[in-house]
Computed example of a mutant assay.
Amino acid sequence: MSDHVVAWLRELGAREIAHPGGTLLTHLERVEALLGSWGARPALRRAGLCHAFYGTDGFPTALLPLARRAELAAVIGDEAEEIVYAYAACDRAASYPTLACEEAAYRDRFTGRVDSPARGSGGTWRSCPRPTNSTSRGSIPPSVTHGEPNSAPCSSG
């Protein structure tokens, strides 16, 4: 499946789109390889390979419009597509400062909806990747990440 997805990424122009550290395609392949080296499940690896399909808050270039979500889901599966959407939709300025809070607030930049993974609201909260430069599994090179979460204190209500 990965070869099919990479061929589609090439068709959509990812090989020609500049991205820090090379091209968008190179970045996406590095992310998939990194997730694989960590033993990530197949759906998460496919999501890593496709995480920029709808653009992101830090990289606005989209390969597909949101109206074509069903096409991506048909290629990579529903779970992987939901992860891609959650990553693309994350409003970083609104969401990152709250990630360490008991009731983190995730804001969808496409819909404006704000919700909390702590409330078990369904959706893809458990899947929304959080960029970081250090993890228990080792260091993530800057070419894979897109910045650091802000370190604002949690509000007490």
Rank of each mutant, 00 (worst) to 15 (best):
142 P>Q: 13
155 S>D: 13
153 P>N: 08
155 S>M: 11
108 D>E: 05
101 C>P: 01
59 F>R: 00
14 A>E: 00
24 L>H: 03
37 S>A: 14
48 G>A: 08
7 A>M: 10
114 V>K: 02
149 P>C: 09
120 G>N: 05
107 R>K: 13
143 S>R: 12
100 A>S: 12
150 N>V: 14
99 L>P: 01
145 T>V: 13
69 R>F: 07
9 L>Y: 03
30 R>S: 13
6 V>I: 15
2 S>Q: 15
144 V>R: 06
128 C>V: 05
134 S>Q: 15
155 S>F: 13
58 G>E: 15
147 G>N: 11
6 V>M: 07
12 L>H: 02
91 D>N: 06
100 A>Y: 10
62 A>D: 06
112 G>N: 06
69 R>L: 03
127 S>N: 12
14 A>V: 00
32 E>M: 12
78 D>C: 07
2 S>E: 15
111 T>K: 01
40 A>T: 11
43 A>S: 14
31 V>R: 05
118 A>V: 12
84 V>A: 03
46 R>G: 08
138 G>R: 15
39 G>K: 09
76 I>S: 01
33 A>K: 11
77 G>K: 05
113 R>E: 08
5 V>A: 09
34 L>Q: 11
101 C>A: 08
90 C>I: 09
115 D>M: 02
83 I>L: 06
28 L>C: 07
14 A>P: 02
134 S>Y: 15
17 I>Y: 00
56 T>P: 04
7 A>F: 10
114 V>H: 02
8 W>Y: 11
123 G>R: 00
115 D>N: 04
90 C>M: 10
123 G>I: 00
35 L>R: 06
126 R>C: 08
54 Y>H: 06
105 A>P: 09
1 M>Q: 14
49 L>D: 08
3 D>R: 13
129 P>R: 05
50 C>E: 07
65 P>C: 10
36 G>P: 09
87 Y>C: 02
49 L>Q: 08
94 A>Y: 05
156 S>I: 12
43 A>T: 10
55 G>C: 01
91 D>R: 00
143 S>L: 11
10 R>A: 09
63 L>I: 03
29 E>Y: 05
70 A>R: 04
22 G>A: 08
151 S>A: 14
15 R>N: 14
55 G>A: 04
33 A>S: 12
70 A>L: 15
131 P>G: 09
152 A>R: 14
45 R>I: 07
92 R>P: 05
59 F>A: 01
53 F>H: 05
125 W>L: 00
111 T>S: 07
115 D>K: 00
80 A>R: 01
64 L>Y: 06
8 W>S: 11
62 A>T: 05
33 A>D: 08
88 A>L: 03
133 N>M: 14
45 R>S: 03
101 C>F: 10
40 A>S: 14
148 E>C: 13
79 E>R: 05
141 P>R: 11
1 M>K: 12
106 Y>C: 01
65 P>I: 11
8 W>M: 14
116 S>R: 03
97 P>R: 04
140 I>K: 04
5 V>Q: 04
4 H>M: 15
